[in-house]
Design a protein around this nucleic acid. Sequence first.
DNA 1: CCGCATCCGGGGCGATACTG
DNA 2: CAGTATCGCCCCGGATGCGG
Lengths: 227, 227
Amino acid sequence: MHYNRGMRSYGQYCALAKALDVLGDRWTLLIVRELMLRGPSRYTDLRNGLPGIATNLLSERLRELKDAGVVAREEAPPPVATTLFSLTPRGQALRPVLDELGAWGVPFMVEGPAPDDAFRGRWLAWPAERFLTDADPDAPPVSVELRAGDGDGADPVVVETVEGAVRARPAGAGEQPDAVLSGSPHAILGLLSGQIDVAEARRRGVRIDGEERVLARLRPAAALASS
Amino acid sequence: MHYNRGMRSYGQYCALAKALDVLGDRWTLLIVRELMLRGPSRYTDLRNGLPGIATNLLSERLRELKDAGVVAREEAPPPVATTLFSLTPRGQALRPVLDELGAWGVPFMVEGPAPDDAFRGRWLAWPAERFLTDADPDAPPVSVELRAGDGDGADPVVVETVEGAVRARPAGAGEQPDAVLSGSPHAILGLLSGQIDVAEARRRGVRIDGEERVLARLRPAAALASS
DNA sequence: CCGCATCCGGGGCGATACTG
DNA sequence: CAGTATCGCCCCGGATGCGG
């Protein structure tokens, strides 16, 4: 029987405290991150996208988020017969929160990963959407595939221009990007964020296949890492 | 001796996870809220603005935030001889994060406070800055004082127009606002957020002294509480 | 008074094992 | 595949003490 566990409230009539009553528990915002980046996901895929989480915590948080109206469960009908978790509109409304928190955290990433940090390629998709702009919106669309890290978290990500904006999505099968960036997550993130240029990135082991000039079109926006 | 307590990391090379490594512990973001709303503050004043916090947690969080470069301590010289805590530029950069999180939490406030919720008047200052706009930026500036709640958390707040924007600050002594709003926090917040109009607010016990028409100038911005 | 440090009980959290 | 069950540990909450 699960009563109101984890629902410890700050007991303050304040918008920020109320938000943290729902989102402040450990792992909660990272679960929202995965649902935001992946879209509707199965339990196992969420677990894979959240290295380090305990399975009981994942199920408990998903239940709390469902009760709070942030997450929805939908049972897919046979023959698939799997459960899908997704964000409600109220959950989608957290996008600006994650964007701002992530932007604030970018300087920590620039320092490089800790020795045992886990990594998933799609975690770059979201900084990419935030920091890249299309330098020539009227030209035909371009796309770049990012392959960061080794096999474990190597889900490739495609960054493409869409009507003047830059969007990122998981790479599908038989992808045909204009260019492919391969290298360490650290170096690729430095390139995306504008902290280092193409020459410096290459010096740090980044490999560029395909048409390199499309990189000049996806330019990092202005100063992002204010001290 | 205090080693690296509480520094439990998610161990993920992700901007959001890195941000939460610093800010994700309990009470941390609320401490930043107080420093943001109050400016440089003494330990005791922070404690008063954070009803429910344990004193050891406050000191521990302040130390962690200092180590992370978010908070600075300055020892005021004699004869004052008190310690002041303030936000570094890196801490000030959290303003958009708090704004977005707070905006997301506003719908919970509209539902009204829980039975034993604590309240401080200055918690309205920050939603006010976010949700009010000056409907007539070229006219002479106006100011409204908010007195929400009873004695305990009645720190009055002054909302005023400053060059087309709306700013909030703690009310000083001998304040001369154009109007004064008194009433329950719930009703006043409804008015600020545009959820209820002046007539409805009055029906809910809000009292308006001074020139009522200045309220027409401080208009709530467009829809804020998306379902 | 102000700014903590110390002590202690309870429960959230983390890791593993297990099940329909 | 999608969880539940169980068990330590350490974070958290509350009270008290205490030096400057």
